[in-house]
Simulated scan of single mutants.
Amino acid sequence: MIIGSILKGKGGQVVSVGPEDTILSVARTLAEHRIGAALVRDAAGAILGIISERDIVGGMAAHGPGTTGLKAAQFMTRDLVTVAPQTLVTQALGVMTQKRVRHLPVLDEAGTLRGLVSIGDLVKARIEEAEQEAEELKAYVTAAG
């Protein structure tokens, strides 16, 4: 299975915040959408980075009280790890493990944002794939038997 198949099912909508948004605003956005990360984009829509719950917790630990008023640009991860729509789910899981990230923006060959996948999306896809394989094997054994 490829990442593009996951995006067909979940859609390409990506929640974004601005670099000047406060950490409180970002936290509220994440809570409202029940997500663990959001892309940070400028007014023209260019991707500047990603901000996750992990970034917020690390920033709070580093900056202490008053953190909620600081800006997303101060906490975001600037070096994005991305995948393409044709990337295999197993490859994307490997990238997540190696780079220790839980969210991957999906960019096409032109660099256009196509969506965002989470570790949960990929694990769900692998489970569905394994269940389908098991059913196919069961049907094969039943037919052969």
Rank of each mutant, 00 (worst) to 15 (best):
L80E: 05
V89F: 02
V141C: 14
A139L: 13
I23F: 02
R34V: 12
A73D: 00
L7T: 01
P105W: 03
D55T: 09
Q132P: 00
A125C: 10
I119F: 12
G12K: 15
Q91I: 02
L116N: 02
L48P: 05
G45I: 09
L93T: 15
T112M: 05
G4R: 07
A73W: 00
E129G: 03
E135G: 07
L122V: 10
D121N: 13
L122A: 09
G145L: 15
R41F: 01
M76P: 01
A46L: 07
T97A: 15
P105F: 10
L107G: 03
I23T: 12
A92T: 05
L116A: 08
E135W: 09
P85S: 02
F75C: 11
E32H: 07
D42E: 10
E135D: 12
L48R: 12
A139T: 11
I23K: 08
D108N: 15
A44I: 09
A61L: 14
A73L: 04
I23Y: 01
T67Y: 08
D42H: 07
V81N: 10
R78V: 01
D42C: 01
A84C: 03
S16M: 09
G36W: 08
L24I: 10
L7R: 07
R78I: 03
H63V: 11
G11V: 12
V106S: 08
A37R: 08
M96G: 06
T87K: 03
G66E: 14
A61R: 11
G49Y: 07
P85D: 04
E133S: 08
S118E: 04
E133G: 04
V95A: 00
L80F: 10
H63L: 14
I23S: 02
L137G: 04
G115T: 01
S52T: 11
S5M: 15
D55L: 07
A37S: 14
P65E: 10
I3D: 00
E32D: 11
I2L: 06
R28W: 10
E133C: 05
V40G: 03
D121Q: 03
L113D: 09
A37W: 13
K99L: 03
A44M: 14
P65W: 03
K138L: 06
Q13T: 14
G69A: 13
Q13S: 15
L104I: 14
T82C: 01
R34N: 12
G69D: 15
G9H: 02
G58L: 14
A130T: 15
I3W: 06
G115F: 03
R114T: 08
A143C: 04
L122P: 05
